[in-house]
């Protein structure tokens, strides 16, 4: 929808784009992966009518509100809107982080790791949590809190590795 083009990183020249987690993840363990650039679309309306493309992942928060993780947010927005579902490009709004380990998960949230995906409290902020195979998880959260999230995750990891000192 052209009135909302100004929300879409995909409409910017690619070399103009940066991730909110970039600086925090320098030197971080490989188990942490930055998913911030991935396409994310917020949906409002009858989610049953959203047309999904190959590889799209729909996370339902309520019957009328959901998030679509997609490789092509622009196409997804056009498709949803054509089906009467309002769609907003949240690619730039949400930072994304993939991490591993159920203990790490439990130290960050009291959500049930067996009942994902869902939205809930995570490191005292709000996030959408997704579980992949095994003990691999993804979290999506407001990008302005991205650096904070990385700091916390790295600190918890240091603690799990037996470190004693906080942010020494």
């Amino acid at each position: 929808m052209s009135a909302l083009y100004f929300m879409s990183p995909a409409r910017c020249t690619p070399e103009t784009l940066a991730s909110p987690l970039e600086r925090g993840l320098v030197g971080a363990p490989e188990s942490l992966r930055d998913l911030s650039p991935d396409g994310k679309v917020e949906l409002r309306g009858d989610l049953a009518r959203v047309g999904l493309a190959e590889g799209d992942e729909l996370i339902r928060l309520t019957p009328r509100r959901g998030f679509l993780l997609t490789g092509d947010p622009l196409a997804a927005i056009d498709r949803s809107r054509a089906n009467g579902v309002l769609a907003y490009d949240m690619t730039g709004a949400l930072g994304g982080l993939a991490f591993e380990g159920e203990t790490l998960f439990r130290r960050l949230t009291d959500l049930d790791p067996g009942a994902l995906p869902t939205a809930g409290g995570f490191a005292r902020i709000s996030a959408i949590l997704v579980r992949d195979e095994g003990e691999r998880f993804r979290a999506y959260f407001p990008q302005e809190l991205g650096h904070y999230v990385v700091e916390v995750v790295l600190d918890v990891l240091a603690g799990l590795a037996g470190g004693r000192s906080h942010r020494a």
Binding site: L61, G120, S126
Partner: peptide
């Protein structure tokens, strides 16, 4: 009373 699922689905 009114409640909002502020950190979750927002309802």
């Amino acid at each position: 009373e009114w409640w909002q699922h502020r950190q979750g689905c927002g309802e």
